[in-house]
């Protein structure tokens, strides 16, 4: 299953094949315009199974995905366990470290896990019972970063740090992936940059999209360790990472930036004010690590963003 997920043209097809029977039957009865746009499939023991299509939640019913809860399908504990086993190619234990963090990610498909968590020494230590899963299907939107590159001045591409801000599910990871593909390839406006992607949850890098790119990936490792390793051994010009937020991560980014590395990262938030509410993130702007904020919002036909240049505190005072 692992190998077939990576080589499958359509990730949705590869997941549908191993879903519980009731879910499979419901999905194949779903109308064609909806089916390819499914971004999430949620299975819940004792609850309603649903799919998310363009930010809208639909019930999984016996006759397909519907807006109204009629003839809802159900799944059992055994269905979810069986799906996870098939997803992990019969080796669930091999993903113990990520399961302890509540997810499994293979071939770009991330399965979020919920249930009765086991705790050890104050940290999550896996699950004694898994009662719901959220299967996130990646949909890459080629060219979604065109708007960003159009607004950036040519001299700033690859030189000035960009922080992408958006609420969950609005397309941060998709945007980062598209930026990584563009920036590590030769274009008329800029040369290819040596790019390292710190892919902690194995969601950004998909081999088939990065053909011809000067991109290296460090996956399944924390951002702190990944950045430190990348700086030491890969001499990157640009580092791309997803969902920064902690003080430790901000610290390591700041240190790496001193070496002349440009950062393109994402963070949860609705707007610039949300971002600046965290003093250690504001400090990154004051220190010049990031110069731009790109706030995303998801529309039915794609991702849109608004680019704002943020001057460091010192330049604001001089102005």
């Amino acid at each position: 299953m692992r190998e077939s997920l990576i080589s499958e043209q359509n990730e949705l097809d590869s997941v549908i094949k191993i879903l519980p029977k009731s879910v499979f039957l419901s999905l194949i009865k779903t109308e064609n315009p909806i089916l390819p746009k499914i971004s999430e499939i949620r299975l819940r023991v004792g609850g309603a199974c649903s799919v998310t299509v363009c930010a809208e939640n639909l019930y999984l019913c016996s006759d397909g995905a519907k807006k109204e809860p009629q003839n809802l399908i159900s799944v059992t504990q055994s269905d979810i366990d069986s799906f996870l086993r098939d997803f992990c190619a019969g080796s669930v234990y091999a993903y113990e470290s990520t399961i302890k963090n509540g997810y499994v990610s293979i071939g770009g498909i991330r399965v979020g896990i919920c249930g009765a968590a086991a705790e050890k020494n104050g940290a999550m230590n896996g699950f004694s019972e898994i009662t719901s899963i959220n299967i996130r299907i990646p949909h890459h939107i080629f060219g979604c970063s065109d708007g960003l590159f159009a607004e950036l001045s040519q001299s700033d591409v690859g030189k000035e740090g960009i922080l992408i801000v958006s609420p969950p599910g609005a397309g941060k990871t998709t945007m980062l992936r598209d930026i990584a593909i563009k920036i590590s390839r030769k274009a008329s406006a800029h040369p290819p940059f040596r790019t390292v992607i710190i892919d902690e949850r194995r969601e950004i890098f998909t081999e088939k999209f990065f053909f011809g790119c000067f991109a290296d990936v460090l996956s399944g490792v924390s951002k702190e360790l990944g950045i430190e390793c990348a700086v030491r051994v890969m001499s990157p010009e640009i580092i791309i990472c997803d969902e920064i937020g902690s003080k430790a991560e901000a610290g390591i980014i700041s240190d790496a930036n001193i070496s002349g590395i440009t950062f393109i990262a994402s963070i949860h938030g609705k707007n610039v004010h949300d971002v600046f509410a965290k003093p250690w993130i504001k400090k990154l702007f004051d220190d010049g690590v990031f110069s731009y904020v790109y706030v995303l919002s998801r529309k039915t036909d794609g991702i849109v963003g608004k680019l704002t240049k943020i001057l460091p505190e010192s330049e604001k005072n001089n102005a």
């Binding site: 019969g90 080796s91 669930v92 113990e96």
Partner: peptide, 11 residues
């Protein structure tokens, strides 16, 4: 029985 547990130690 192999491969069904969440934990490496169990396997």
């Amino acid at each position: 029985s192999l491969g069904k547990s969440l934990y490496t130690s169990s396997e």
